[in-house]
Amino acid sequence: MENVMEKVMYKVDEVIDLIQQNKRLLLSGDESLLKQLPKGNWIAGTIPYFMAEEGGVCTKDEIQVTEIPEYAEEIKCITYDIASIKNVYKDGYENGYTVLIIPGLSDAHLSFAINAPDYKQFATKPLIGWISGVQLDELSKVSPKTYFGPDAVLSDKNAVAMHVKLPTTKYAEISITNLFKQGYGDTIEFVESGFCAKEAIINGKLQNFAEYVTLKDIDTRLPLVADYNGIMINISFQNIDCKLGCVKFYAPVFTGMEYQLALPVNNYIEQFTDLIKQQGIEEVAFSCNCILNYLYSELEGKKTGNITGPITFGEIAYQLLNQTMVNLEIKDI
């Protein structure tokens, strides 16, 4: 396996140098570092957790950098608010890819999560990205943000995207690496789509979902999993609100989709390394992994193969995902 860039963690001064060299950059880091950067060809999101060269790390001293390959013919950076985010697929180049960063907990985040499948040209062009975040113990004090490099402007409302045009000799391919599989337990359907569920149809019977999760003593570190024609799509539990009698999730559940609780993953690193080999992932141009994988599988200090990138509050591969690593590869036609 070979990475496009070996060094991925940079000091602020080094990133300023790269920006001044007109490099086209995807950045992730703490707000205190990102706000020091000059205008340029970059977009960024806040997060202090990374899959770094040496393994999982939490740092506010360095910025994670992904450089757009030199063979990319053109880029365009666009900000999207809650009204315009529906254009994110349409705005992409015919042959290329788009990297989208959305501020965590923003209206744009919620809107994209629920409505992306209805956007014009949904899934017709490669779209990868992530949801920005903050250090977990600062969640109530600091809002996740995005940065629009061309104006060096930050936002806790607007998403930012870099659309990248590839030469006709290359194409972008997005894959997901998800260790979770549907278990063999109850089949769960939800009566309403959204981030919160009060009732669910469990094995055909309508039940209060919070009661169900509590009575069954379900391990909420394991996600609900839906089968999308062979691809496992996770929905992670956020919390159970006993007062309101509802269960909150980090991504929306959809009515009509059948979910099952995931099977446990015993050794994340070992299974992850095996899966990457099975998938034949070779040259990763961009990748990100989920904060819940980092926490629940205790990835701090552990290497997830040679793959690097931000650890995020949500991953995007065409649509919002949870507890999943997403990968962008650029291949020759």
Binding site: F122, A123, T124, P126, E173, I174, S175, I176, Y228, N229, G230, I231, A317, Y318, Q319
Partner: peptide, 8 residues
């Protein structure tokens, strides 16, 4: 992947 998601 895009085909799987769009089809689903």
């Amino acid at each position: 992947l895009a085909g799987k998601i769009l089809l689903s």
